[in-house]
Design a protein around this nucleic acid. Structure first.
Length: 370
DNA sequence: AAGATTTACAACCGCAGGGTA
DNA sequence: GTACCCTGCGGTTGTAAATCT
């Protein structure tokens, strides 16, 4: 295929004025892409090697942090085709990323419904409860925290909660976490270990059933979700000293949030309730960032990108966009999380056999009105 | 103020499992 | 049955930002 494209330079980027890239995806006039992307595509055109580069091929596969431009390309592709078939994504988007990287970027960052920022007290409790019950099965744990990714939870556990629990254990204080019966690895005899395990399981069962009770924790959880991120540490149960670092990626999260906001217009009420909150949080966080742009680097770039999003996708046009792209109706069902993820607010919480068994055993069934 | 250290989190890597030809 | 492809998961690493000395 002949590579014919007319462009004009706009600052660091190039704007497609006319023509078509040598990709299956046609970039419309006005589409802004960065110089690097253009070079990559031009190079491939020249080499006649358009198409999918081998996944994880060491050469030609970009690694490291994603740029906002790459995010735009990925999101726009997924907007058109929906998530899935990741193997084809690099080829079809021209991204110099392996399919895995694209999938991870989407599932851990760009996908709608992701809540960023500090974990709430309820979320923290849930993680502790579930980790005690399920171990390091982060995907399973994430299933009970609809707005958090397994990666987020895993990171939070490894960098913060685990240390906090170890500290509490080391100080000999049950502290505020004693009630959850959390196991903290420590040398102990088999007997001690078994007794401890039994206690842990019993307490975790109880704690989990309480945490998952729609009348209690779940409603609280959702209420928490509605609260502003800035209030997270106010009156924290643990009086968390974790520094506020809500949105490190706000410069682009703002843009992504604005883009994705359009999608939510097509989302049915039931699923929107939780997701919209996260968008509000996300957008709000972005707005917060914007409000303090004087101290936020790249704010100008940020503003430009926001414009780019509007230019590219236009919120209004999304009103009539493909309903397939509505998060709750996604083909994969993974726009939020995997399809097995329980709807915390929606009463229907499918438990695994193990969890059911554990909860049944604890006689907590009466607390769970599924 | 500057260097050292810690923290937080995005991203990568390797493996496992499911689907399919 | 099996080889291959694709995806998901959990462990780990790299690095920027924050904090400390």
């Amino acid at each position: 295929m002949e590579c014919v494209i007319e462009i004009r330079h706009v600052h660091e980027e190039v704007e497609v004025v006319s023509g078509m890239m040598c990709l299956e995806k046609e970039f419309t006039v006005g589409h802004l892409i960065d110089q690097h992307q253009l070079e990559v595509r031009e190079k491939r055109c020249i080499q006649g090697k358009m198409g999918r580069p081998p996944c994880c091929d060491k050469e030609g596969v970009k690694k490291g942090p994603w740029t906002p431009e790459e995010d735009i390309i990925l999101v726009s592709y997924i907007q058109e085709h929906g998530p899935g078939n990741w193997k084809a994504v690099p080829a079809k988007t021209g991204l110099s990323r392996c399919s895995k990287s694209c999938r991870l970027r989407w599932t851990n960052y760009l996908r709608p419904g992701i809540k960023r920022g500090n974990f709430t007290e309820e979320e923290e409790k849930m993680i502790i409860h579930l980790q005690a019950l399920l171990g390091n099965r982060w995907a399973a744990i994430a299933a009970y925290l609809p707005q958090r990714t397994d990666n987020d939870i895993k990171n939070y556990w490894n960098t913060y909660l685990k240390k906090k629990l170890n500290k509490l254990e080391a100080s000999g204080s049950e502290g505020s976490l004693g009630h959850v019966g959390v196991s903290v690895s420590q040398p102990m005899s088999r007997g001690q270990w078994e007794r401890r395990l039994q206690t842990d399981i019993q307490m975790a069962k109880k704690a989990l059933s309480e945490a998952l009770s729609p009348n209690k924790a779940s409603s609280t959880l959702l209420a928490e979700s509605n609260s502003k991120l800035s209030n997270h540490n106010t009156g924290s149960f643990y009086n968390s000293t974790k520094p506020t670092q809500s949105i490190c990626y706000a410069s682009s999260a703002d843009n992504i949030a604005r883009l994705l906001k359009g999608w939510m217009k097509n989302t049915p009420k039931a699923s929107r309730s939780t997701t919209q909150n996260s968008f509000n949080n996300l957008a709000g966080a972005g707005a917060d960032t914007a409000s303090s742009e004087g101290t936020t680097k790249g704010s100008t770039h940020n503003a430009e990108l926001s414009e780019t999003f509007e230019t590219l996708f236009g919120y209004e046009s999304l009103e009539s966009s493909n309903s397939e792209f509505s998060p709750s109706l996604s083909p994969e069902g993974t726009l939020f999380q995997d399809e097995s993820k329980p709807v915390i607010a929606g009463i229907d919480i499918p438990f695994s056999l193990l969890e059911k068994w554990l909860l049944d055993d604890a006689g907590c069934q009466d607390k769970l009105s599924f």
